[in-house]
């Protein structure tokens, strides 16, 4: 194709998106659109899969059967969400194995929040309440994104995720109304997860390199800073309601803006964790690589069994 032809196709393509038309897998698309979507969607899928690890840590130690079935169902949903997103990403022409390879070699990223440890049961509450809360704010606008398979996967994810946040908040309510030790445990979890949750919504707009293009393709409908403000405004009253304190001395209601002002975020910490120096980066990656490598014989055996069955069927047919 000549450069001129590509230019004209690109123009038509941008016009389709501007008209709110969806792009489907076999449609022509600019290489950059394909690459950006592979990057963002696979990163999203990886986050769901790695995101099972911090919570998986507590399934066997959940304090009651009610909490255990809920946590188990939540972690299972995350596996499901990872699978919807991987299969949606595959429609762009990358294989599942390539995506795993990119995750395992550190070429692909996943949400930095999962590189923090879950040291008490209250962390299950804080993750559901704050991390899933922030994730929902991030994900809801994606239900309208321009790439059809991604938008459809996100609709399913968002529908299923609303219980995740509620189960987390319920854990926090219970602890906050419990013994002084339990309340202290809840406050400690909030102290540790608050700032990473704010960082999870991404770098400030001034530093975010992908925002402009992503807005145009409807991969993003609101800027990181707007999403962060939305998250803070919705979460602060929820903390007050259960008697917990947001660990930010500069947090203050701004009557003029009808929003909360908040303190400076430690972006050095964020970039350190993104670059692999968070407290749990190595442990998380090792768990994923081990699961993949130790599962190889099972995958191979299943394939060998399927082939044998197929051969037997064909022989009988003769």
């Amino acid at each position: 194709m000549s450069e001129e032809q590509i230019k004209s196709l690109e123009k038509q393509f941008e016009a389709r998106i501007a008209r709110d038309e969806k792009i489907e897998p076999k449609d022509w698309m600019p290489e950059k659109y394909r690459k950006t979507h592979i990057r963002q969607m696979s990163q999203h899928a990886h986050s769901e899969i790695v995101g099972m690890l911090p919570e998986g840590n507590w399934i066997t130690r959940a304090p009651s059967l009610r909490r255990k079935v809920a946590l188990l169902a939540k972690v299972q949903d995350e596996a499901g969400h990872g699978l919807y997103l991987y299969s949606a990403t595959e429609t762009l022409g990358i294989s599942r194995e390539e995506m795993y390879e990119q995750l395992h070699t550190g070429k692909a990223k996943y949400s930095s929040i999962f590189n923090y440890p879950t040291i008490t049961w209250a962390d299950m509450g804080a993750i559901g309440w704050l991390v899933d809360g922030a994730a929902i704010i991030n994900q809801v606008p994606l239900c309208n994104t321009s790439y059809g398979p991604y938008a459809r996967a996100m609709i399913r994810v968002c529908k299923e995720e609303s219980f995740h946040q509620r189960q987390g908040y319920e854990i926090m309510i219970k602890l906050a109304n419990g013994t002084p030790e339990q309340k202290e445990m809840a406050q400690d979890a909030l102290n540790r997860w608050w700032w990473p949750s704010l960082m999870m919504l991404g770098p400030t707009d001034a530093e975010s390199i992908h925002t402009e293009q992503s807005m145009k393709w409807k991969l993003k409908r609101k800027s990181n800073d707007d999403l962060r403000q939305q998250f803070i405004d919705q979460t602060v009253p929820q903390a007050e309601l259960i008697g917990l304190t947001i660990p930010d001395p500069d947090l203050k209601w701004n009557e003029e803006r009808k929003s909360y002002d908040f303190g400076a975020i430690d972006w050095d910490e964020f970039w350190q964790v993104v670059k692999g120096h968070g407290p749990m980066n190595k442990v998380r990656m090792k768990a994923r690589v081990d699961a993949w490598e130790n599962g190889k014989w099972v995958r191979d055996a299943a394939m060998a069994h399927a082939e044998k069955k197929q051969e037997r069927k064909e022989k009988q047919a003769v």
Binding site: L83, Y84, S87, A88, E90, R96, R152, A153, R299, A302, M303, H305, A306, K309, Q310
Partner: peptide
């Protein structure tokens, strides 16, 4: 949607 599996039962 889609998924990976070794055979039709799986």
């Amino acid at each position: 949607g889609s998924l990976h599996a070794a055979d039709e039962d799986m």
